[in-house]
């Protein structure tokens, strides 16, 4: 009786089309492009700020416009996606055991959402938007 196991190959570049949950995962992973791009924008803002008032004014003028608005809209959307997917799994990484039971995961998620809303409101107030 000869053994001849058959190995099914998985595509290294297209595997994530194999199941909707893999696409959902990849949509979470690509948020990093937008978080990274936004960090670079912040870095640029700080650099222009350090170069003086005129430099910073031209920076603000440069980021005004429909294309910037489109790009920043994408950043907001993917940042929201990162936030939601991040907070939703916090109970997995940091479960809280109380006596014989565990704090329901929903509590931990809700606490993060509450903190998120408070921080966002505080920033908007501080920025003079609200």
């Amino acid at each position: 009786m000869s053994r001849r196991p058959f190995v099914r190959l998985v595509s290294g570049t297209r595997w994530y089309f194999g199941h909707p949950r893999y696409l959902r995962y990849m949509s979470r992973e690509v948020t990093c492009i937008f978080i990274g791009a936004f960090a670079l924008l912040l870095l640029r803002a700080v650099e222009r700020l350090s170069a003086g008032q005129a430099a910073y004014a031209s920076f603000l003028a440069a980021i005004a416009g429909p294309w910037s608005a489109l790009g920043l809209s994408l950043v907001v959307i993917f940042a929201l996606h990162n936030a939601v997917s991040w907070f939703n799994v916090t109970p997995k990484a940091l479960p809280v055991q109380i006596g014989e039971g565990f704090l329901p995961g929903g509590f931990i998620v809700a606490a993060h959402y509450a903190a998120w809303i408070l921080v966002s409101l505080a920033v908007l107030l501080f920025a003079g938007v609200l």
Partner: peptide, 13 residues
């Protein structure tokens, strides 16, 4: 980033 990126990006938007 989860806490701050959306609101900070909104300011720049």
């Amino acid at each position: 980033a989860a806490l701050l990126a959306p609101v900070l990006a909104l300011l720049f938007l």
